[in-house]
Write a protein that binds this DNA or RNA. Structure first.
Length: 456
RNA sequence: GGUGCGUUAGCAAAUCGGUUAUGCCCCGGAUUGCAAAUCCGGUUAGCCCAGUUCGACUCUGGGACGCACCUCCA
């Protein structure tokens, strides 16, 4: 039985889908005005893992991850670059896809873009207005009247009184209450035509929060199972989504809210505003993408994850151990898990406990130890199959261990020379060659079957 | 100021009221021409102070420290 930590309940709860065997999941994706950093990688990898686990558990899951392709930052960046909004966003959507693909992230079933759902958003705003929850302000914006929605704050655990105490809420003239948020922004003269849509409230563009409410209900229905995203979206974004969706549809919006923890640098949240971020492509120049994926999944998704080269190096070595176990056995390419087998039972129990990949991966290491000891092909096949559930261990072990390099032929040549020296009992020469290779980061491993090599 | 989360061995990171987490590092042994890999064994824990309990890293209370949200952020 699967349990999920539900932010709404602040507790782990047994997962019961709305429709038997069917899961509908929405995850807040990227605002595409720059390259994705490791924080974005974590959301993508974590919810990809969730998606895969539901599938492995026999659910029919529909996964939606949106793309925000219209907002203040995009408009500003496009203006700076002197290019159109569309050309800017398309470029970064493509880059995001390339990064996600590299990390082994499955494409969601739908990737709706905000600009493609403006009519749905307008329809929703109209409903909110009809329900007395939205109003046209003097400045031309349409705002949400937060105090008219009972239960505002139930996700983030904030009361309207607490929020006021913060005194950090932007005061805008048009708002009836400083906590109200904008649903529709009136058009400004200095903005490009590309960012203006017609509406009954005048020309303008959508506020940030409304897109997720509109696209979620359009693609998954007014009430669906899971909504995810980074912990920083809990408030105000997800709180506002609830207010919009429940306010418009007059029914429950989402049953389980999942939030992943931050990636940190020097114990601080990695974020664009702090400028302490590493882009995915930057990191992938130095580390294998699977190492990065492994690094992310080795921690529980809700825990903070500190990023540093030392941690990535550690992850690389750990993953080496798993691949090394596979190398010796000739594990078949069949990746069918035997779920009755003892390690798989423990793996499943870990995953069913709020997607505890840290524990699941620990089981993988114990299984690897078993493979090394028993040299059992079945055990190796099981290790490979369980790894694949997490999107790991799917490559040829030798390809992974040897890594990418252009001097492979040279290495093979030197190994041949060393083997010749060994045959001639010229061990001094054999050791000299090995040491020379080691200096280049190449480790040789002799075995009855011949000499293997790998990069460290 | 309000709210929430966290503090586990050298590093990373889980579980659990009593039984080896796991990975990397380190030490010893087996193995090897020498190595590497592997196997066997070992060292190193639970921020502090109270309480509950036969027994607490695990539960309760208090404190310290750290992080996050309350503003765009995954």
């Amino acid at each position: 039985m699967l349990k999920i930590y539900n932010t709404l309940a602040r507790d782990k709860q047994e997962f019961v889908s709305i429709e038997p065997n069917v899961v509908r999941m929405y995850v807040c994706g990227m605002t595409v005005y720059d390259y994705c950093h490791l924080g974005h990688a974590r959301v993508m990898v974590v919810f990809d893992m969730v998606y895969r686990w539901f599938k492995a558990s026999g659910y029919d899951i529909t996964y939606v991850r949106n793309i925000t392709d219209i907002d203040d930052k995009i408009i500003r960046r496009a203006a700076e670059n002197n290019e159109s909004i569309h050309s800017l966003t398309q470029k970064f959507v493509d880059a995001m896809h390339a990064d996600a693909d590299a990390l082994g992230v499955t494409r969601p079933d739908h990737e709706p873009r905000a600009t493609q759902y403006v009519p749905e958003m307008l329809e929703m705003i109209a409903k909110l207005e009809a329900n007395g929850l939205a109003y046209l302000a003097a400045d031309g914006d349409v705002n949400y009247a937060v105090r008219k929605f009972e239960g505002y704050g139930k996700l983030s655990g904030k009361s309207l009184e607490d929020l006021r105490a913060g005194e950090r809420v932007e005061v805008t003239e048009g708002k009836n209450d400083p906590l109200d948020f904008v649903l529709w922004k009136h058009a400004r003269d200095d903005e490009a035509e590309e960012v203006k849509w017609d509406s009954k409230w005048g020309r303008g563009r959508p506020g940030w929060h409304i897109e997720c409410s509109a696209m979620g209900s359009k693609l998954l229905g007014e009430h669906f199972d899971i909504h995810g995203g980074g912990a920083d979206l809990q408030f105000p974004h997800h709180e506002n989504e609830i207010a919009q969706s429940e306010g418009a549809h007059q029914c429950s919006y989402v049953n389980y809210w999942m939030h992943n923890g931050f990636v940190r640098v020097d114990n601080e949240k990695m974020s664009k505003s702090l400028g302490n971020f590493f882009t995915i492509r930057e990191v992938l120049k130095q580390y294998d993408a699977e190492v990065v994926r492994f690094f992310i999944l080795r921690a529980h998704y809700r825990s903070p994850l500190n990023y540093s080269d030392a941690h990535l190096d550690d992850a690389k070595k750990a993953l080496d151990r798993l691949y090394t176990a596979l190398k010796s056995g000739s594990a078949s390419d069949e990746r069918v898990v035997d779920w009755n087998e003892a390690y798989a039972v423990r793996f499943k129990a870990a995953m069913d406990d709020d997607f505890n990949t840290a524990e699941a991966i620990a089981v993988l290491f114990e299984l690897a130890n078993d493979v090394n000891r028993s040299q059992s092909e079945n055990a190796a096949a099981q290790l490979k199959a369980l790894g694949a559930v997490l999107g790991l261990l799917e490559r040829d072990p030798l390809v992974f261990l040897q890594g990418a390099g252009s001097d492979d032929a040279q290495i093979v040549g030197k190994i041949a020379a060393r083997n010749a020296a060994k045959l001639a009992k010229n061990y001094a020469e054999a050791d000299r060659i090995r040491k020379a290779l080691l200096a280049d980061g190449i480790v040789l491993e002799d075995s009855a079957a011949g000499t293997n090599w790998r990069r460290v």
